[in-house]
Design a protein around this nucleic acid. Sequence first.
DNA 1: ATCGCTGCAAAAATTTTGCAGGTAA
DNA 2: TTACCTGCAAAATTTTTGCAGCGAT
Lengths: 156, 156
Amino acid sequence: MTASGHSPKRSAEKLADLTERLRRQSRKVTGPRQALLDLLRQQSHPLAIREIFAALPAGISDLATIYRSMHLLEQMRMVKRFDFGDGAARFELVPEGEDGHHHHLVCTRCSVVLEIEECFPEHVERSLAQTSGFQGITHRLEFFGLCPECQTTKSI
Amino acid sequence: MTASGHSPKRSAEKLADLTERLRRQSRKVTGPRQALLDLLRQQSHPLAIREIFAALPAGISDLATIYRSMHLLEQMRMVKRFDFGDGAARFELVPEGEDGHHHHLVCTRCSVVLEIEECFPEHVERSLAQTSGFQGITHRLEFFGLCPECQTTKSI
DNA sequence: ATCGCTGCAAAAATTTTGCAGGTAA
DNA sequence: TTACCTGCAAAATTTTTGCAGCGAT
């Protein structure tokens, strides 16, 4: 498990390497995309579209552009989508060659995020596949709780 | 694991018992609520608001009323909210005295749902609590894959 | 010169809220 | 009678789409 938001990214890829991945797929390296990728690579936890939009200097990009970029990057497997159960998709950069599969422990009050490296249900998917006949089984798993900080803070 | 949509509800509560739970909390037993509860009790998998609205006879209820009812029922612990990662909340009736905690295996093509009774990550929550200091840890876990039926069906 | 990408605007989809009237208890 | 509840309308969120023009290669 790794603290997030403060700790360095597990495998910080250089911006140039990220844009190179774009070029390799005949996608264009534009201003908005560089700003977006540079923002993501400095984060070690998933960012919501809204957070990305707010973090980017005003006028650098547009909500529609960000949505379209995230769709593209997801399709290219450069980002992974996470869902914390509020109605907002979150995205995290995926190091080249990896699949980005991991889980999170999210504070239900302040939304701080810890990354969980271990993946527990993996061995279960095989038995599920056998008993159900489903193919290509994957899963989403997120943990929620009250972080130590919020335990000592008076309720709002 | 139990096939859903066709199999009988694990512990089908009578409608009268459900409305009694309402009365016990000084909530009123109205037409829309009876229709809603009667619909849910005949289902063994989570229903989206939209599905509920569509299944109810026209004029029986209103989208806003359904949303408000689901909020109330969730607060009363009579239903549990599930999230399959598309942008739509789903709700399932929770038998009295239970917490409704379980997981699903969802077909990514036809959306058929199997219920998974086992809960794997439960024993992990304790160790997570120790290493992270988080309190009251819970989790969401859903499985996805291609069901046997869809494996043999030509792609659209 | 292409083809892809962007910003703006409008639309869609899901969920929330205000309000005036209606109904269960 | 008195809360609580409903339907309708409007608004708030999140996400998608159309389109004309701009820009990376």
